[in-house]
C-alpha cells in the first residue's frame, strides 16, 4: 500500500503527476450472480451507500444486465472497507484501480 508518510517531498514540491499516482482512486465493482435477489441488491445499495432510489435501481440493473457495476470510488482504504461490507451482505465485490 502506498503512503506519503516519510516522503522527502514537501506538499508544494509534489508535482501533479506523482500526486496522481499516490492518490490514485480505487473503485468497488459488484458482479452479477444468479442467487442475490434484485430487491435485496437494490436495498443494499440504498441503505449502505445511501444511493437514491433511482441510482440504486440503475446500478442494480446494470449489475443484472451487464454483469457488473462500479458502485463506489475513492481512496483505497475506504474502498477496502466497502468491499468487505459487500462480502458481508453476500454480494460478489472486488477492489479495482480506477481507470
Amino acid at each position: 500500500m502506498s503512503s506519503t508518510a516519510g516522503s522527502t517531498l514537501t506538499h508544494q514540491e509534489t508535482d501533479l503527476h506523482l500526486q496522481g499516482v499516490i492518490n490514485r482512486p480505487y473503485q468497488v465493482v459488484v458482479w452479477n450472480d444468479p442467487v442475490n435477489l434484485m430487491s435485496y441488491v437494490a436495498w443494499v445499495f440504498r441503505s449502505y451507500f445511501g444511493h437514491s432510489k433511482e441510482k440504486a435501481r440503475e446500478l442494480m440493473l446494470q449489475v443484472h444486465h451487464r454483469g457488473k457495476a462500479v458502485v463506489s470510488s475513492g481512496a483505497r482504504e475506504k474502498m477496502e472497507r466497502h468491499v468487505t461490507a459487500m462480502h458481508n451482505y453476500g454480494l460478489q465485490a472486488t477492489l479495482e484501480e480506477a481507470e
Binding site: 468491499v83 468487505t84 462480502h87 460478489q92 465485490a93 472486488t94 477492489l95 479495482e96
Partner: peptide, 11 residues
C-alpha cells in the same frame, strides 16, 4: 461466502 476481493490472485 468468503469471496476473493480482487481479480488478481496475489492481491
Amino acid at each position: 461466502l468468503l469471496p476473493d476481493a480482487s481479480s488478481d490472485p496475489q492481491e
